[in-house]
Amino acid sequence: MADVEFHSEEGSGSLEGDISVPGAARTDDELSTLDEPVRETIMRDVKAVGFKFYHVLYPKKSQMLLKQWDLWGPLILCTFMAMMLQGSTDEGNDRKTNDGKTNDGGPQFAEVFVIYWVGASVVTLNSKLLGGSISFFQSVCVLGYCVCPLAISLIVCRIILAAATQNIALFVIRFLFVAAGFAWSTFASTAFLGDSQPRGRKILAMYPLFLFYFVISWLIISHTHS
């Protein structure tokens, strides 16, 4: 009880200081995000996402993707690819399997979804284990955004598949597009994530990344259903 009295005496001293909240408007001139129109808020986020896509497509040394991470882009890309790669279940369109259900063997939505996120987390975990100086979500963000070139090659593949009857030449074109997308994705993610790894270990961190993009590329190239 003696302690309490001692404290109550000292507690009478004034407490002063500025409370700074990171991200909040510091002065009155700066517009607070609380009372701005919703449209502006959304547009700002959309712009940030778009800017990150641009950075992936034109990779140069930039810390923006790492510093202001978000998972919007990866979510959009993942959903888009999963829908595009979704196997058709139309009747009469494809061959029947044993149980009478129709399935062209394309990957299911959930499969692509799981490959995408589990793959990204495995690559991230590996880079953490190797001693990389990067947070979990930063890495997942970069990996997710860097699928963008592959998504573009997927669009091209779908157009080619829809446009004409298939032959070897068209397959070669599709293959080239997917290979380019794969190389681009790997290169972009290496440019962003390479610096976070200790020197000499880069290749160890890049190997699972390579495998991850390889599997996604393989899903795209093997998707022959228009």
Binding site: R95, T97, K101, N103, D104, G105, P107, Q108, A110, E111, I115, W218, S222
Partner: peptide, 13 residues
């Protein structure tokens, strides 16, 4: 995939 595997392949994966 290369063996042109036509099954609901989420489970096989």
């Amino acid at each position: 995939k290369s063996a042109d595997h036509k099954v609901a392949d989420g489970t096989l994966m």
